[in-house]
Design a protein around this nucleic acid. Structure first.
Lengths: 252, 252
DNA sequence: CAGTGGTCTAGACCACCCT
DNA sequence: GGGTGGTCTAGACCACTGT
């Protein structure tokens, strides 16, 4: 007997679907309150746990947020735009071709909880930088905030060979940041490669980025190379997935 | 009184943390069975619902999968690599600099459930293509599979003005696909822009891509432009976040 | 202080996998 | 058939948000 499709979905899914439809249709929109546990219990005649389960589906989908003592609300998506290469951007913006509405950074990024240390390179970092395993590297960790909202975590690694003892190994790197310091050494980054993946955050990341449930993060791993393709920096970034749209422009 | 930090986390979080630590430490690795509901109830002396809640945390983090009637297992991450521009790739691969281990497509992609139709352009599509609202476009929807595993959904839009009545508007577009057909018309794509965001999937996407809980998706919105920056195609892709690593190479 | 969501217990029945 | 996860009920106490 073939798997029959006529068995109805569980109640909690149907409830979730009703609420989801109300949001998709625009009957409920950004910031609106959605029916809470007690509402759903009455409306559908179900137990508390079932109403909760329906809401937890929507929370884990990231389309609503629960606020203790207050209610459950429709969540908005208002990301920042992060550009890879900017070459074509202006032409495209001129034509109004950006798809997702995105805020432009009103204020500027603030840097937070900077930690600098000289450490032995983990295997994947050594590989990215073309170093031998456990080679000494300068590690710079920091958090970026925009108007008090944490947006991303970043950890840079640079070979200690040329980074140790320079401004690169100090919390304050001076005007232009580490790329300016690299340029002064004749190691200006000329080529970049970025690898991107998505995943759900760890509890530590959830805390550090103030993520609500159902928010994935983007891992962006960037390797910066000089003109002659020597790797000079490896940067491991973790971005709040609800806060960013990434844009890349390139030629065929 | 300031918010005190000394209140212990709920039991279910501590249980989840224990299991997570076992996975992170390597005591449990890809595909291993993790303690199930009954195990956790006994080990921690908690009720069924509490053990379930602990497991649901890990499931929604995407680090384990539950299989009905069998158990709960550690999940692996073995993605494919999707390249944007390929220019630098060879140099970097040569240096062994790829970070995430990724399979290369053993077989080739198969295309699935192709749907072609001529429709009125939604507002965001019209904007991307530089058309007036509701202008006629050819819409091509399909699913890509790799050895029976669905990997991504894609919907392309091309102005009906030059796409209608051509091979582009047929399910089978012939060798080289729609880009080859565009080139034959003197509209070869020369520039691309891609916007990437990340989110949790809709239930429809979960079904179409066979996603397990805790798997985010990547939305990739690509606009293809000719030499003179006329938009000729807008492609909306939804990728299984557990199946892909994206790579972009570019110059400063 | 009433209402909200967060945690937890102690049951129950079911569908499914595996042996 | 025994064990597994999936759904659901009917309670309880708590912490927090609002007025």
């Amino acid at each position: 007997m073939p798997t029959s499709e006529n068995d109805s979905p569980p109640v909690y899914r149907e409830i979730a679907e009703d609420v989801r439809a109300a949001i998709a249709s625009g009957r409920l929109s950004d910031g609106d309150r959605v029916p809470g546990e007690n509402d759903l219990m009455k409306q559908y005649g179900v137990a508390r746990a079932t109403a909760r389960q329906a809401l937890s589906v929507l929370i884990n989908e990231g389309i609503v947020v629960a606020i203790r003592g207050s209610g459950v609300y429709v969540r908005a998506f208002r990301p920042l735009r992060r550009h890879g290469p900017r070459r074509l951007s202006r032409e495209l913006w001129g034509a109004g071709r950006a798809i997702w509405q995105a805020d432009s950074p009103g204020g500027s990024f603030e840097t937070d909880s900077v930690e600098v240390a000289e450490v032995a390179a983990p295997a994947y970092v050594a590989r990215a930088l073309g170093l031998t395993d456990e080679a000494a590297v300068v590690r710079r960790h920091r958090r970026y905030r925009l108007e008090d909202r944490p947006m991303q975590l970043a950890t840079s690694y640079l070979p200690a060979e040329f980074a140790a003892g320079t401004a690169i190994a100090r919390p304050e790197t001076g005007p232009g940041g580490i790329y300016a310091r690299l340029a002064e050494q004749g190691r200006a980054p000329a080529h970049f490669t970025e690898e991107i993946r998505v995943r759900m955050p760890t509890p530590e990341e959830t805390a550090a980025l103030h993520l609500s449930a159902g928010t994935p993060v983007l891992d962006v791993l960037r390797t910066a190379l000089t003109d002659d393709h020597t790797a000079v920096e490896f940067n491991e970034m973790t971005l709040d997935g609800s806060a960013y749209v990434l844009q890349y422009d390139f030629d065929a």
